[in-house]
Design a protein around this nucleic acid. Structure first.
Lengths: 224, 224
DNA sequence: CCAAAAGTGTTGGGCTTACACCCATGT
DNA sequence: ACATGGGTGTAAGCCCAACACTTTTGG
């Protein structure tokens, strides 16, 4: 009674790629790295790499995100969204990549090189530079998933610090969905959902200060 | 300038599993096989198996569906929906399975054994028997995805033959979503969507014959 | 007092839900 | 004639989209 993989079991390289989004300058940005080694040396790519033995997929995604970019903050959201396994997607051989979607909170903008990475930086998610491998397709699909998740779960809050203003929240929606929204309707809708609590304080800046909110205690993010 | 996988690239077994749904007896059914070999010999499981060298993932899913069940009809819908890669999900070693959702048309009910399969058969999707490996979790996630897709794309039509009646279509909705719907509201909604064309004929049976419909010419299924 | 951004209500249309009876056919 | 399933309309509530001016602060 052997319990080894049968001889016909195809062995492939198992990788993860991470599409990490954050807000910066009222724009949705995606985290990219410049590759150090072949193939695609000096090209921009999504952070990612091979899974370690005995390592879970989401752990590998987290590790790659952190080591390749020196982002040591916890992502506020991390989920697998699609698996890319086309036969010739990697010139080195058959590599299957489980792509993950990550949301990093506001302020996580400073990134540095590390690992196989020359540089790392944020780029406009809707107008990315040319990317290595099939990473452009991965990014497009991540954007679609993010847009669906934004309204379905309340992922928008994950882009913001603990307290935030309604105009800031609206900016997240507009940046992710890539369209302007009406201020009054937006407020009505969000406030009536009861997932925000006014925190009483006010933030200063140019113009009239805005009411600060935090997420209500009972807010659940749906599992899927 | 070598272009081989780096030594640290983890090699894993690459498999696909297929959750194939069809309607039978006004119920949503899922296609299961009884495994011939270890592990989990004589247990019920989803059809699936290892990807072949140089084979695309969706092709592998189609092949496994056909060889393990003698279902040689083309599925009307086949899409990847999640990848299961937990370290210990397979006692034989690290196996990552890209799970696929398939919809088979009405009438595809006769299935036979084949390959590593002792028997194959249809089981109620909402009350499945105990399943091998993590296949219960895979089925649950497939059901969720199917429910989302049903309304989003118009997957319901894929369960039916070319011509069908509105009560038949409603039965698909009710079986997939697992709840009763109002007949008049259902008709209003579906007909106002303009994706159905009355085909004039009528089908005979017990009671008043029903109007037959077919899908309208311009109907598109969204890519994702 | 001016610039800048925050805040605030109403109306109309479309969509969804709830609900009960008659119709066409086969036996 | 009756059993079986198919087919039909209306009214109420809810949600969404459109739309412009006032308020609060800093400079």
């Amino acid at each position: 009674m052997t319990l080894d993989l049968p001889p016909e079991a195809l062995q492939v390289g198992l990788a993860v790629d991470v599409v990490a989004f954050a807000m910066h300058a009222d724009e949705l940005q995606v985290l990219l790295i410049e590759r150090r080694s072949l193939p695609h040396a000096r090209d921009w790519a999504l952070p990612g790499g091979f899974v370690h033995p005995g390592e879970e997929l989401n752990h590998a995604a987290l590790r790659e995100l952190q080591t390749e970019t020196s982002v040591h903050l916890e992502p506020r959201h991390l989920e697998q969204f699609y698996t890319f396994g086309e036969v010739n997607r990697d010139p080195r051989g058959r590599v299957v990549s489980v792509a993950h979607l990550a949301v990093l909170p506001h302020g996580t903008v400073q990134v540095a090189a590390g690992g196989d990475t020359l540089r790392a930086g944020w780029y406009p998610a809707h107008q990315p530079p040319p990317l290595a491998f099939d990473h452009h397709a991965i990014l497009q699909r991540a954007l679609l998933r993010l847009q669906i998740r934004l309204e379905y779960a309340n992922l928008a809050l994950e882009f913001l610090p603990d307290t935030f203003t309604l105009p800031e929240l609206q900016a997240v929606y507009e940046a992710v969905l890539n369209r302007k929204m009406d201020k009054r309707n937006f407020r009505k809708r969000l406030l009536s959902q009861g997932m925000l609590t006014a925190s009483g304080e006010r933030r200063s800046g140019v113009g009239r200060p805005a009411q600060l909110y935090r997420r209500a205690k009972n807010v659940k993010t749906p599992a899927l």
